[in-house]
């Protein structure tokens, strides 16, 4: 079902984008978009719809650990948590786990019989500051090790220098290297400085992506991360691109989404911008590590009626 970009298409895209400037993709009304997203936080979501939203959010989580101190043991417990987030069996498993390439083999063993995808960051994550050859090799290494999904970073330095064609060619090259794996393109929006740049970068990525690939806000390693506003810019880019081409691209906000309440706000934004077709894990994901615990905590609260303590949900021991 994946549409492979042919050599002809790629050269065509390259020719088109030769003349492109950031403004060619349309500009973003900064005040308008910030007003719009402020409204998303005012929706009243209670009881059954809240429970549905929380469970849906669980099923969209890319449970993430991206630390220098990650070990096979930590990934093993992450996989366990991904398969069965809670002892309440009505709570679904998460969509995927997101790890470094060197740990994929470990996770593959533990998730062999499960629908949970293994996502791996690649392309010199998080900076992307390496040669294209090395970055492509890393992608191939991750795919060969068994990754179902690749989270790549774009070269922000190149983008900010105005080398848009080069940025797009690099993404196209990574698309080819991923083979059958799904690709998520991290724009690292906090380093793109303006909403116009975020919109333009979204389009540049989407033009070379296949249906079912994703664009993603952040690495979680930079100073800024996903906000409702920069996610909204990307959602509207996805909508406009879909209306133009019919190609559905997925969305993954990442970094800084820690509470269930935030997650519901993000789902409201999806629902009101892209509609129900995007309200599932094949088109929407949350990149998060601590979000899952708060979702479980709030689900438990909805069901029991009593506020729960965070340390019931595998928070760091020793917390009060």
């Amino acid at each position: 079902m994946f549409r492979r970009t042919s050599a002809w298409e790629r050269s065509y895209i390259t020719v088109v984008s030769k003349h492109s400037k950031v403004e060619d993709f349309g500009t973003v009304d900064r005040v308008g978009i910030e007003e719009r997203v402020a409204k998303f936080t005012t929706r009243s979501i209670k009881k059954q719809s809240k429970l549905w939203g929380l469970n849906t959010a669980v099923s969209m989580v890319d449970l993430t650990t991206l630390e220098g101190k990650d070990t096979p043991g930590k990934v093993a417990s992450l996989c366990q948590k991904a398969r069965q987030p809670s002892d309440d069996s009505s709570i679904p498993p998460v969509a995927a786990i997101c790890i470094y390439p060197s740990l994929i083999k470990e996770a593959r063993k533990l998730l062999a019989d499960s629908p949970i995808k293994i996502a791996s960051v690649a392309t010199a994550f998080p900076s992307g500051q390496s040669s294209l050859k090395v970055r492509l090799q890393e992608v191939k290494y991750a795919v060969n090790a068994g990754a179902d999904e690749i989270d790549m970073v774009i070269n922000r330095g190149l983008f900010l220098a105005g080398e848009y064609d080069a940025v797009q060619d690099e993404i196209a090259a990574v698309v080819e290297a991923t083979g059958d794996a799904t690709l998520k393109v991290i724009l690292e929006v906090s380093e793109l400085e303006t909403y116009d740049n975020i919109r333009a970068a979204s389009f540049m990525a989407m033009q070379v992506l296949r249906p079912g690939d994703f664009i993603k806000t952040s690495t979680g390693k930079a100073s800024g991360s996903a906000t409702l506003a920069n996610t909204q810019v990307m959602l509207e880019a996805i909508r406009d691109f879909y209306l133009d081409t019919g190609i559905p691209i997925g969305m993954k906000p990442a970094g800084g989404i820690r509470t269930a309440k935030q997650a519901l706000h993000y789902l409201v934004a999806v629902k009101e911008t892209l509609g129900d077709a995007w309200l599932n894990s094949s088109r929407y994901r949350f990149g998060a590590s601590s979000l899952l615990n708060d979702l479980l905590r709030q689900i438990h609260k909805e069901k029991s009626g009593a506020y729960q303590a965070p340390y019931y949900f595998s928070e760091a021991a020793g917390s009060y």
Binding site: G305, A306, Y307, Q308, P310, Y312
Partner: peptide
């Protein structure tokens, strides 16, 4: 009631 049941 909330003081009583709040687990935290």
């Amino acid at each position: 009631p909330t003081f009583a049941t709040h687990a935290h």
